[in-house]
């Protein structure tokens, strides 16, 4: 198993990478909860003109039949027209790829973007779908049964932490 990197020190590199692909049509969407925290930081670092979009994919999950509806879904807010955009989709950790699939389905119900690129803080492997991140802060190996997730401290500092999967 890999060491868990420091989230804060991954941010400048990831932001620099993203900066290079910003176009006048670029807008950012963060996925609740960890992805939204990360996107808030990256959005500010890039100084994007369009306000940040935030998305909860609860209504698009593929495990609803097994798990039911998640408690307390957040409101998805896309404060710009998705049609013709170059979207930067931001999540904290890329694992099976199922969240990203659900997010892309939801985005297309808002319009037809010109492109979508995925940016994540950490890619832990274990993909179950043909999805990859165009921009990734760190790649690491995390065994199944453990959950890697982003935490945000009271002062706003982000950190990656391991916990047992529920």
């Amino acid at each position: 198993m890999s060491d868990i990197p420091d989230a804060e020190s991954l941010l400048p590199g990831l932001a620099a990478e993203l900066k290079a692909r910003v176009t006048p049509a670029t807008a950012m969407v963060g996925l609740y909860t960890g992805g939204a925290w990360l996107a808030e930081r990256l959005h500010a670092m890039l100084g994007l003109a369009e306000p940040l979009g935030l998305m909860d994919i609860a209504f698009y999950r593929d495990d609803y039949a097994k798990q039911g509806l998640k408690h307390d879904p957040k409101r998805t807010r896309i404060p710009f027209d998705v049609g013709g955009r170059d979207l930067l989709l931001v999540d904290d950790v890329l694992y099976t790829g199922r969240t990203v699939r659900a997010a892309m389905n939801e985005l297309f119900d808002y319009g037809r973007p010109r492109s979508i690129a995925l940016a994540v803080l950490a890619d832990r492997g274990g993909r179950q779908l043909p999805i990859c991140a165009q921009h990734c802060g760190a790649q690491l190996q995390v065994p199944e049964g453990l959950r890697l997730r982003l935490k945000r401290a009271a002062d706003g500092r982000l950190s990656l932490e391991l916990e047992r999967a529920a």
Partner: peptide, 13 residues
Amino acid sequence: PFADVTEREVKKV
């Protein structure tokens, strides 16, 4: 969040 769905281009989940 369901109230928001009814304001989108595709009003369906």
